[in-house]
């Protein structure tokens, strides 16, 4: 992993959040009787999901700026 310069932080976060996310996904789907539209119909959930989807796009300019500032590591 270090050789590939992979960042381990997302790994740990995903590991901790995975059981929680699974539980919530099942809960919400049970409440909605298996209807996936529940995530789109609730305004708050929809806006949060939209933010999650848009985050990479919105932050990309900032990322590029940061990359340009950091000297490339050999």
């Amino acid at each position: 992993m270090r050789r590939l310069e992979m960042e381990p932080t997302p790994l740990l976060l995903g590991f901790v959040l995975a059981p929680l996310m699974e539980e919530r996904l099942r809960q919400s789907l049970q409440l909605a009787h298996g209807d996936w539209r529940v995530f789109v119909m609730q305004p708050l959930a929809a806006s949060l999901l939209l933010a999650a989807l848009c985050a990479p796009v919105l932050l990309l300019p900032a990322l590029k700026l940061r990359m340009a500032q950091e000297p490339p590591t050999p």
């Binding site: 996904l25 809960q27 995530f39 609730q42 708050l44 959930a45 929809a46 999901l49």
Partner: peptide, 8 residues
């Protein structure tokens, strides 16, 4: 927050 919101 409900289940769906906290998942998001």
């Amino acid at each position: 927050l409900g289940a769906a919101e906290s998942l998001a």
